[in-house]
């Protein structure tokens, strides 16, 4: 893209009816005050209930940002989907599958449960499975492994990421249940014996600071076959994009995943920091941020936004009906034609 084209594209994003549509969604759901901010560690309670950002990045690299899209928060469980991708790149599908299954659990995200026959954790989106995939991240020592992980996120989002140290330390200090799971898996030989290093890495990956825009870039990169649509950099081997998206669809929304797949049908991953990243393959990525969580730990406003987008533009993976609006038309239009 030439500079002229890129400037013109940023302006057409401003005048696009799609931005106007997102603006209306934002207004509508800002008024929704259901749910509660996560409080299992004190740092998370500092999040303001009114924070609300919606960002959409298209496969063509157009960025639509509404509301609090620059507000930093911790990525939490959303990191799990992307670290799974890194583990796949490091070891290949067969080996990773031998360590972590891909079955939805139907249990809460922090359940201490392994497959009785194979001893594998159920899937990479629950804590046990994520600890196992984190164990698979290659690197000579903890620093190198962390650096590789942060470099991976940078390839997806196009910018450097920091770790929120107080949140990392709090997660580490209170993460007894995760520690128990790790040792249970060590007992069964499902993780290597560098357990403490891997747990640190797990708590660190949950404490990475992101914005709603970063979450949209993450999912837009998946939607674009593993290549960041703005920078053009490859973030994930094309062969594994489908693996990551599949587990997001079946397991990404904690124990609300089945209903999510039915109602929204966009592969997604949520985090208790208030983020949701959702993929419309070959089309766009959505990132939402609002820290008010429903009973299952998913952002209440974020769910509404994804539901509306899926419904209005036919973004459900299995949609065959004519949607209310044509997405391409809506994005390419000019809202000056519709005052």
């Amino acid at each position: 893209m030439s500079d002229m084209q890129s400037l013109a594209s940023s302006i057409t994003a401003v005048t696009s009816p799609f931005r106007h549509y997102l603006h209306e969604l934002h207004e509508r759901y800002q008024a929704l005050n259901d749910g509660a901010v996560a409080d299992y560690i004190p740092e998370l309670t500092l999040a303001k209930p009114e924070w609300f950002g919606i960002c959409v990045v298209t496969k063509a690299g157009q960025v639509f940002e509404i509301g609090d899209c620059d507000q930093l928060f911790t990525i939490q469980s959303i990191s799990k989907a992307f670290v799974y991708g890194l583990a796949l790149e490091d070891h290949g599908r067969d080996y990773v599958n031998s360590k972590v299954s891909v079955e939805p659990t139907g249990e809460a995200f922090n359940a201490i449960v392994l497959d009785e026959k194979t001893n594998r954790p159920y899937n990479p989106m629950v804590n046990a499975g994520a600890i196992a995939t984190t164990d698979l991240v290659k690197g000579a020592n903890s620093t190198e492994r962390l650096k590789r992980m942060l470099a991976m996120f940078k390839r997806y989002t196009g910018r450097d990421h920091d770790i929120n140290v107080p949140i990392f330390l709090s997660e580490k200090a209170t993460g007894f249940r995760n520690r128990a799971m790790a040792y249970l898996m060590l007992n069964f030989g499902m993780v290597s014996d560098r357990v403490d290093e891997t747990l640190d890495l797990y708590f660190q990956q949950c404490s990475i600071m992101v914005t709603a825009k970063d979450l949209a870039m993450l999912s837009a990169t998946l939607a674009n076959g593993g290549v960041n649509p703005v920078t053009g950099e490859r973030a994930l081997d094309e062969r594994y994009v489908q693996d990551v998206i599949s587990v997001m669809l079946t397991c990404g929304m904690y124990d609300g995943s089945g209903e999510w797949a039915y109602r929204v049908g966009m592969p997604a991953k949520s985090g208790v920091g208030g983020g949701i990243t959702a993929v419309a393959p070959n089309t766009l990525g959505v990132g939402t941020f609002s820290p008010l969580l429903d009973a299952k730990g998913n952002s209440a406003r974020g769910i509404k936004v994804c539901e509306a987008l899926s419904h209005d533009f036919g973004l459900h993976l299995f949609n065959v009906a004519q949607p209310a609006h044509d997405l391409a038309e809506c994005i390419a239009g000019n809202d000056a034609d519709n005052w």
Binding site: L7, A8, T12, V14
Partner: peptide
């Protein structure tokens, strides 16, 4: 400028 671009883009 960006502002000029915007006003051109939305003008009839």
């Amino acid at each position: 400028s960006k502002e000029t671009f915007l006003s051109i883009a939305i003008s009839h």
